[in-house]
C-alpha cells in the first residue's frame, strides 16, 4: 500500500515503494528529488494528523461491498438513523467516501446544503441534533456535475475529509464507500490505520453475481487487515403488498449470504427484505425508521444494530 501523490505521473510506483524516485516513470515528476532521497518513504504524515483529528471519535466503521447497488448507501443511512435514535446522547457521523456517485445527501434529505469552513476545519451538515454528514455532494455546483477524477485526486479528497472535518465528539463514524477494492478503499484503510478502525459491515444481496464480488471484498479485508464485523444480506425477500406472496427477486441459487458466511466463518448480522417504501424514502430523504417503525425491515434492522453495537462495545473494553 503506497501513496501516489496527486501530481505524480500515471505510472508512479508510489512514494513508499523501494523504487520511489528511481524508475523511468519518475523522470520529470516534480517530486523526484524528495522521493529519491527516501524522505517520502516514511509513513504519510496525514496518518498521524488523522489519528489526532479522530481521537474523539469512539468507533469507526466502514460499509463495504464488492458489488454495486446492493444497498451500501441505504444501509449506511439506516444504521446512522438507528444509532442516533437509540439514544439522544449518542452522536453519529456519516462520511460519504463515494466520490463519483455520492448518495448520502439525497438519502438523508439534506441535498443542497452547504458545508462551512471554519478555523477548526469543515463543519459537517446536521441531519438531526446527533446525526451529521460530510459528502462531496455538498461541494458540487449542480446535480449534473460529474467528478471526473482519477485515483490520486480521489485519494486526496478522502484524506481531506478524514483530516479536515470537524466532527466534534462522535460515538460512531460510519463510512459509506463505492463498490470495489481500489483507491477509495485502500486510502480509507491506510489513512485510518492508526486511528483505530473497528471494522467493516459488508453488504450483499442473495444472488451469486453479488456474492462473487463480495467474496473478493472479504478477501480484500483479510489482505489489508480489516476486521469484518459481519455480513448483512439486503433485498432478501419481497412480499407482494396485494396477496402477500413471498418472492425471491434475486434468487439465492448458491445458498445466499448465510452459506457464504458459514463457509468463511463470518458472522451474519441479519437480512433486510425488499420494501418499496424504503426505496421511496431513500429517494425523498425521509427517515424510514420513523415512517414505518413496525415494518419487518425496521425490526430486522434493530437486531442488526444491536449486534454492531455489541461488537463495538467489546472492541473498546
Amino acid at each position: 500500500m503506497s501513496a501516489v501523490p496527486e501530481n505524480a505521473p500515471q505510472h508512479c510506483p508510489g512514494t513508499q515503494s523501494e523504487d520511489a524516485g528511481k524508475v523511468s516513470a519518475c523522470a520529470g515528476c516534480p517530486n523526484q528529488n524528495i522521493c529519491a532521497s527516501g524522505a517520502a518513504a516514511g509513513p504519510d504524515p496525514a496518518i498521524q494528523i488523522i489519528r489526532e483529528r479522530l481521537s474523539n471519535v469512539k468507533h469507526k466503521i466502514l460499509i463495504l461491498s464488492g458489488k454495486g447497488g446492493v444497498g451500501k448507501s441505504t444501509v449506511t443511512s439506516l444504521l446512522g438513523h438507528a444509532l442516533a435514535a437509540r439514544n439522544p446522547e449518542v452522536n453519529v457521523g456519516i462520511l460519504d467516501a463515494d466520490i463519483c456517485g455520492p448518495s448520502q445527501p439525497r438519502v438523508l434529505g439534506v441535498r443542497g446544503e452547504q458545508v462551512h469552513n471554519s478555523g477548526s476545519g469543515w463543519s459537517p451538515v446536521y441531519v438531526s441534533d446527533n446525526l451529521s454528514l460530510m459528502s462531496i455532494g455538498f461541494l458540487l455546483g449542480s446535480p449534473d456535475d460529474a467528478v471526473i477524477w482519477r485515483g490520486p485526486k480521489k485519494n486526496g479528497m478522502i484524506k481531506q475529509f478524514l483530516s479536515e472535518v470537524d466532527w466534534g465528539d462522535l460515538d460512531y463514524l460510519l463510512i459509506d464507500t463505492p463498490p470495489g477494492t481500489s483507491d477509495e478503499h485502500l486510502s480509507a484503510v491506510q489513512y485510518l490505520s492508526n486511528a483505530g478502525l473497528d471494522g467493516a459491515v459488508v453488504v450483499t444481496t442473495p444472488q451469486e453475481v453479488a456474492l462473487l464480488d463480495v467474496r473478493k471484498e472479504l478477501h480484500f479485508c483479510k489482505k489489508v487487515g480489516v476486521k469484518v464485523i459481519g455480513v448483512l444480506e439486503n433485498m432478501s425477500l419481497f412480499v407482494c403488498p396485494n396477496c402477500k406472496t413471498r418472492s425471491e427477486i434475486f434468487p439465492a441459487t448458491t445458498g445466499g449470504a448465510s452459506q457464504m458466511c458459514s463457509e468463511l466463518s463470518l458472522p451474519l448480522l441479519g437480512s433486510l427484505p425488499l420494501d418499496p417504501i424504503l426505496a421511496r424514502c431513500c429517494d425523498d430523504g425521509r427517515d424510514f425508521l420513523q415512517e414505518l417503525p413496525s415494518s419487518p425491515a425496521v425490526i430486522a434492522l434493530r437486531s442488526i444494530v444491536d449486534k454492531i453495537v455489541a461488537t463495538c462495545d467489546k472492541n473498546s473494553s
Partner: peptide, 14 residues
C-alpha cells in the same frame, strides 16, 4: 474466483 484485485488507478489504467 475469490481473488481480489487490489489495485489503485494507475495499475488499472495500464
Amino acid at each position: 474466483r475469490n481473488d481480489a484485485v487490489v489495485w489503485r488507478g494507475p495499475k488499472k489504467t495500464s
